[in-house]
Design a protein around this nucleic acid. Structure first.
Length: 547
RNA sequence: GGGCCGGUAGCUCAGUUAGGCAGAGCGUCUGGCUUUUAACCAGAUGGUCGGGGGUUCAACUCCCUCCCGGCCCGCCA
């Protein structure tokens, strides 16, 4: 029964896509625990696109758990795949992105054709291998976002013999395997053998199978050259024998093999698999392995600033980077949105995503009217999966306002301004205030990084370069005297107006002068109130252009 | 070349399952908060539903075709 991965989870009355998918899974009446899988080759720096493999499954898992099912979410590191090209960028365990020049690139080049887990870690850490290193980064991402997933190493599945029965069956039915795969791939001919032995001599995975002896569980091979994209990975020419554990199945068979070994009931995958691997995988599962394929689901790819995400070209944003400017729950919310739409992640416009999340949260708590019933239902169902704790008296400071609060490093000043502007309620509990102000750090980083209009910085250390007319200078001196007398922010704000009027200065010019002196900018926070919060001596000296 | 997914207001997106008055938020504009900006409140502004053709009493929705973005047919989230 062919299943269209584009159709699953569609056409139901559910407002949250994950629930429609859960319906489709339940319809199969699977045994508990229900297994949900994702997976990726640890080929380089993992980015937020890869995170689809974890988050899409996460929401489906949660939906099923809500219905009382036991669910196991697994993630296979497809780390026995071979390195086919040296990536342009790598990242150490602290997510520092480095170019090839900073690591031993020559060593990587010599390892083309070997499984990721047989290639030395390019960094000075204890991961154990290239594959383990990048899998660790993805594990860390999952931990940072707070999603609990079982990581399974594909290499270990082979090493532990888990794959042996499947490999044996595929090779035993090689004719059928060829027949099935040739429907999807042109290059499959009569000589095609669905197994890639690993050369005992050079460690590369080779396609040069000469003989299969299933009784002995052996595959004879010649280590030949392998075409990888536009380049050729040279074989060493060694003639040898490999066991079924010393190699691997080609991806098109390996994926269905994982379904069988792990008992997978549901697997989301990127659109790249939708036209190739999925139809053949489904066919292989049913007609070569004799198993039922999992419920499938396709998700669209993200773009970053309008361009395709690509590890090889370096257009990537990692989970770690995103969490520098967004709270984990906002990132999780990003994956609540319809997986079928191409979606752009834009650092520049991330404030809109946060606003959207805040609204999502408010709808859940009934603080704002949803636009329709579907939006209400989405919030009701998905919100509890997005946050760690559902806490009604949580406080959110609007993101751009939080960015503006980054102008001062003084936490008390931040809090007072936020309170005055009504973003922190009188009776907010301490934890909520703390959480709310934590957003300032992230928003500030965002504003700094993008250099946008919310990037204000109090120029405390040195006097900005100013040149005022005599009348302006007189007005500023007068205001300085007033501030020196000790008045609160509101009084100072009024006095700013009065002073400007007395000196016949345009209001906007006078404010601009104030912003120039404090921020070296033309705009800023409400000036009088802000001056009232700062230490008086500093404000007075600054107004007098003394320091 | 063949195939698949997406394109809805300036921006971010709902709505397309099963044809029935084109929506929300943000932005913008105006006014208010006897105080510029940010925020807040009130009101207003917003569309060839990617283009064209067809079916229908009725099309964002179905069919055909073309354009744009992305993907698959070799490995990729």
């Amino acid at each position: 029964m062919a299943e269209d991965p584009y159709e699953v989870g569609r056409g139901s009355e559910r407002a949250f896509w994950a629930e429609s998918v859960a319906d489709a899974i339940e319809a199969r009446e699977p045994d508990d625990p229900i297994v949900i899988k994702g997976g990726v080759s640890p080929s380089g720096v993992p980015h937020i696109g890869h995170f689809n493999e974890i988050m899409r499954g996460y929401y489906v898992a949660q939906s099923l758990r809500d219905r009382g099912h036991e669910v196991r979410q697994v993630f296979t590191a497809d780390d026995k795949d071979r390195l086919r090209a040296v990536p342009r960028q790598l990242a150490d365990l602290e997510w520092n992105i480095v170019g090839l020049g900073d690591v031993n690139a020559g060593a990587l080049g010599r390892n083309l054709g070997k499984p990721y887990t047989d290639i030395p870690d390019p960094f000075d850490c204890d991961c154990g291998s290239y594959g383990a290193h990048f899998t660790n980064l993805l594990k860390k991402s999952a931990e940072l976002v707070g999603v609990d997933v079982d990581f399974v190493s594909n290499t270990e599945l082979y090493a532990d013999g888990e794959f042996e029965a499947v490999s044996r069956r595929v090779l035993d039915r090689a004719d059928r395997a060829r027949e099935v795969l040739s429907e999807y791939q042109n290059k499959v001919d009569d000589d095609y053998v669905p197994f890639l032995p690993q050369c005992r001599e050079c460690g590369k995975l080779t396609e040069g199978v000469t003989e299969v002896d299933l009784e002995a569980g052996e595959v004879h091979y010649v280590c030949t050259d392998v075409e990888a994209g536009d380049q050729t990975i040279e074989g060493c020419g060694h003639e040898g024998v490999a066991t079924l554990r010393d190699g691997k199945l080609p991806w098109r068979f390996e994926w269905p093999g994982q379904w069988e070994i792990l008992g997978v009931d549901f697997e989301p995958f990127g659109k790249d698999h939708a036209e190739g691997s999925w139809p053949s995988g489904e066919d292989v599962a049913e007609n070569v392995l004799d198993i039922e394929p999992p419920v499938p689901m396709v998700y669209e790819w993200f773009t970053l600033e309008g361009e395709p995400l690509s590890s090889s070209s370096g257009n990537v944003v990692t989970v770690d980077e995103v969490l520098e400017i967004l709270e984990p729950e906002v990132l999780r919310y990003f994956f609540v949105k319809n997986p079928r739409k191409q979606r752009d992640f834009s650092v520049e416009n991330v404030d809109r995503l946060v606003d959207e999340f805040d609204r999502f949260e408010e709808i859940y708590f009934g603080d704002v009217e949803p636009r329709d019933e579907a939006e209400r239902e989405l919030a009701e169902r998905a919100y509890p999966m997005v946050v760690d704790d559902v806490r009604e008296d949580r406080v959110r400071i609007p993101y751009t306002f939080a960015a503006v609060l980054g102008m001062t490093e003084d936490p008390d000043v931040r809090e007072q301004i936020a309170r005055k502007e009504g973003h922190i309620p009188e009776d907010a509990p301490e934890w909520a205030v703390e959480d709310a102000l934590a957003r300032v750090e992230r928003a500030q980083r965002w504003a700094r990084r993008t250099g946008n209009e919310f990037d204000y910085e109090l120029k405390r250390a040195e006097l900005p370069d100013v040149d005022f007319a005599p009348e302006m200078e007189a007005a500023l001196d007068e205001l300085a005297d007033y501030v020196a007398e000790g008045h609160d922010g509101e009084a100072i704000q009024s006095e700013i107006y009065e002073t400007a009027k007395r000196h016949d200065i345009e209001m906007s010019d006078f404010f601009a002068a104030g912003y120039r002196l404090l921020f070296d900018d033309t705009e800023g926070p409400q000036l009088g109130t802000f001056m009232g919060k700062l230490d008086r001596g500093f404000v007075v000296k600054r107004l007098r252009r003394e320091a």
